[in-house]
């Protein structure tokens, strides 16, 4: 088993929490893991990505080769498209539909959605609204992870436990809200 995931977003949108959750779950499952992240200058509102690789055998490269990723998980729709060169021909894109507009030439949303549609295997959902309805507007990233969860070859309970572990020190309420976000995301992806 191997699963290569590109996590995408804009600096500050919380893709590293998604990475940390999958990472904890992978360790729990006794899998090999490599996860490469971006720090420094580009975190200032620029595009950020993380390469996350899990496998039941040794992983060599910290970076995913072009055309090899099983999943692109993105918290921003345009950012999902930026990493298509890494996606394998059978790979899936799971992305938030809500744009993060901090540039003047941000593309027209219809054009953007059409490009996403063109990529084939795509799950697009409004994670922000789902998170807001749960009363946890900052949990959009966990909604997206939930939506991607059925594509990640690990039991869902393990991911839930990882969320619990990750947010434990922030208190019971935060843990509960993030697990709810994860579940709602999974549900939303299954019923679309």
């Amino acid at each position: 088993m191997k699963c290569d995931i590109i996590l995408a977003g804009v600096g500050g949108q919380g893709i590293l929490s998604i990475a940390a959750t999958i990472g904890l779950a992978a360790v729990e499952e006794g899998l090999f893991l490599k996860q490469s992240e971006v720090h420094g200058m580009s975190q200032r509102g620029g595009d950020v990505q993380s390469h996350l690789r899990i496998s039941d055998s040794e992983i060599h490269s910290d970076l995913i080769p072009h055309g090899a990723a099983d999943l692109i998980i993105s918290v921003e729709p345009m950012e999902a498209l930026r990493y298509l060169p890494w996606l394998s021909s059978e790979g899936w894109v799971i992305t938030n539909s809500v744009p993060y507009v901090n540039i003047t030439d941000y593309p027209d949303s219809a054009e953007l959605m059409a490009a996403l549609e063109d990529t084939g295997n795509t799950v697009v959902l409004d994670a922000d609204s789902i998170a807001r309805e749960l009363g946890s507007p900052r949990s959009g990233n966990m909604v997206i992870l939930g939506a991607a969860s059925s594509f990640i070859p690990m039991p869902f309970e393990i991911l839930e436990r990882a969320v619990q572990q990750l947010f434990n020190r922030k208190g019971r309420e935060i843990v509960y809200l993030n697990i709810q976000a994860l579940r709602e995301g999974r549900k939303a992806a299954a019923t679309r």
Binding site: L81, P85, W86, Y106
Partner: peptide, 18 residues
């Protein structure tokens, strides 16, 4: 190697900002 897909033209640069 499988080169993967091209980046669609709709994707814009997003440089870091204040």
């Amino acid at each position: 190697k499988n080169a993967g897909k091209e980046v669609p033209a709709v994707v814009r640069q997003r440089p870091p900002s204040f």
